[in-house]
Computed example of a mutant assay.
Amino acid sequence: MATNRHAQIRYTILDRCFNNHNRLFDYDDLLNEVNYVLFELGTEGIKLRQLQYDIEHMKSDAGWAIEFDETLKKGRKKAFQYQDKNFSIANHPLNVNDVEQLETTIAILSRYKHRAEFSWLEELIPRMEQAFQLVESGDNGIISYQENLDLKGREHIGTLFNMILKRKQVKITYEPYGKPEFDVVVCPYHIKQYNNRWFLFCFNEEYKSISNYPLDRITGIEELNASFESSTINWLDYFDDIIGVTKPEEGKVEKIVLRFSEQRINYVLTKPLHGTQKIYKEDQSNCSMTIEVIPNQELYQQLLAFGPDLEILEPAKVRLKMIDLIKETSNNYNYAE
């Protein structure tokens, strides 16, 4: 049985229902659950016959060979629930149809991975092939990735992504470090990952400006029916003149000259700090580089990480800021042995 995007959505909804051991679902309940989501996505609902076909496919070997607890009833009607309480198709190996579709999708994506705007596919494709075991047996340890599966806020990514797609205003409950949580109404625009952390960029209704909130400090999200303030920002360009995620409203781009030690310069050449990085030709040692960015907290954090291998030559205000930060750091170690 061929499957399409809507079929996969239906299987995911049914899987959630079958895996819910706090509630029983009969045919009517399952139809309501599936059609509610489909209507929200702006597509037609399904009839009982299609639902029955979907369930039979999930039970078949071509699907996931699922097994139900056949003893369950809701009133006089048959109820559906997995026999194995720990089963979910999300944790089950891919079926034949899934593998074929995924391989086709990867083949299509591979056509575009050499284009600049799709450079992220170079990492994504091998990651998918390994995660879904599409590599040859014994080759599943070729590559590993840095990630934190316990990172708070990951569960909000899908919700916020859909709110952005649907252009929905939301109320988020936010809990700053060491302060009481509060509610804020925003129009979500963009989600960005930086330094293994996710951030939401949005229009803040109270301050009438762009704000960003780390997802690990968001404790709740509520969809609102209020009007949505459209964004005029090109998010592909928004981060071009900064390092990280903080963009000071009154900040100006500065040409910063950085002199590295001979031991560190090759590292910087192979891993540029920023897309504007160039060799500083006025330095005959070839150990100096320039970048053109708006100074922010993330910039100084990166520069401090080079320790004694880096000296800021220009501009004076960035150099003085670095001197102050280094002095503050040094003061932490001014104690008697």
Rank of each mutant, 00 (worst) to 15 (best):
G63T: 00
N334M: 12
K47Y: 01
K255A: 08
S231M: 06
D183F: 08
N97R: 13
T104W: 09
I125N: 03
D216T: 02
T173V: 08
L14M: 13
A62Y: 09
D309S: 05
D15C: 05
L320K: 15
F203Q: 03
L224W: 08
P176W: 03
N196H: 11
L151E: 10
V293F: 04
Q302M: 12
K252V: 12
C202F: 03
F161V: 14
G138H: 00
L94G: 03
E67H: 05
L320W: 09
D309V: 02
Q8S: 11
G275Q: 06
Q301K: 15
S110F: 00
F68G: 01
F80G: 09
P272S: 01
A305S: 15
T270Q: 10
T159W: 11
E122F: 06
I108K: 11
M1S: 12
F260T: 07
T12C: 08
I233L: 03
S110Q: 11
V34E: 01
N332F: 08
N162Y: 11
P272A: 00
I312L: 02
E223Y: 09
N97T: 14
S209A: 14
Y82H: 08
A2P: 12
K278N: 10
T173W: 12
V99P: 00
L325W: 01
K59N: 02
Q277C: 00
D324W: 02
L134M: 05
P308R: 06
L299M: 09
I326E: 04
E262M: 14
N32L: 13
K59D: 02
T71Y: 03
E314A: 08
E298P: 08
E147G: 07
E205Y: 02
Y213C: 07
H21N: 13
E175A: 14
L94S: 09
F182I: 06
N234G: 00
L151R: 11
I106C: 08
Q169H: 08
E147P: 00
L313N: 00
D324T: 10
T104I: 13
I142N: 14
E123C: 10
S209N: 15
I243C: 04
I125Y: 04
E155T: 09
I218Y: 06
R127Y: 11
P272Y: 01
N148R: 09
L304S: 07
E129K: 15
L149T: 09
Y207R: 15
T219D: 04
S60A: 04
R217M: 06
L31R: 06
I66H: 04
A316L: 09
Y213F: 15
N140Y: 07
P214W: 06
I265K: 07
K317M: 10
L24C: 06
S209E: 14
V99G: 01
K171P: 07
P308C: 05
E292N: 11
R319T: 01
P272I: 03
I323E: 04
F306Y: 07
S211H: 11
S230E: 15
L299N: 07
K208N: 11
T159C: 13
K208F: 02
I108V: 14
L310A: 04
N4K: 11
K47E: 09
I143W: 08
T290H: 00
G75A: 13
G42R: 07
P295I: 07
Y335D: 11
E337H: 09
T43M: 13
I55S: 04
M58W: 08
K281R: 06
A7H: 14
A79G: 10
V257Q: 01
N234Q: 02
Q193T: 10
E103P: 05
L31F: 04
Y189C: 02
K113I: 02
K152A: 12
